Lab assay of single mutants.
Amino acid sequence: QEELVKAFKALLKEEKFSSQGEIVAALQEQGFDNINQSKVSRMLTKFGAVRTRNAKMEMVYCLPAELGV
Rank of each mutant, 00 (worst) to 15 (best):
I23Y: 02
F47W: 07
R51F: 15
C62E: 03
F8C: 11
E2S: 11
A26S: 07
L4P: 01
K56S: 10
I23H: 00
F47M: 09
Q1R: 11
G31T: 01
Q30A: 11
A7Q: 06
A7K: 06
A7T: 07
N36R: 07
E15M: 13
E58P: 03
L4R: 01
T52Q: 15
G48N: 09
K9V: 14
N36W: 04
T45D: 13
I35T: 04
R53Y: 15
G31R: 03
M43D: 01
M43I: 04
A25R: 11
G21K: 13
Q1W: 14
Q30N: 06
A49H: 02
V60R: 03
F47Q: 04
K16D: 03
E22A: 10
K13H: 08
Y61N: 01
F8P: 00
L11P: 00
S41Y: 11
E3W: 08
G21W: 14
S18I: 08
F32R: 01
V60N: 02
Q30T: 05
K39Q: 13
E58F: 04
S18P: 04
K9L: 15
V24E: 05
K16W: 04
P64T: 05
Q28A: 10
E14P: 02
L27A: 00
P64E: 04
K46C: 06
L67Q: 15
D33L: 14
N34L: 09
A65Q: 11
C62D: 02
A55T: 08
L67N: 15
E15N: 05
Q1T: 11
S19R: 10
S18V: 11
A65M: 10
M59S: 05
F32Q: 01
L12H: 00
L4A: 03
R42E: 15
E22K: 07
V69I: 09
Q20V: 14
K16L: 07
G68Y: 03
A49F: 04
Y61Q: 02
A10Q: 13
S19T: 15
G48K: 10
N54F: 02
G21R: 14
C62G: 14
Q20K: 14
Y61M: 02
Q37F: 09
D33K: 14
K46L: 11
K56H: 11
A10Y: 08
G31M: 03
A26N: 06
F8S: 00
V69W: 03
E3K: 13
E3Y: 10
N34E: 11
L44W: 02
L67D: 15
E3P: 10
N36M: 04
S18H: 11
A49V: 07
M59R: 03
K16T: 08
V5C: 15
R53C: 08
M43S: 00
F17L: 06
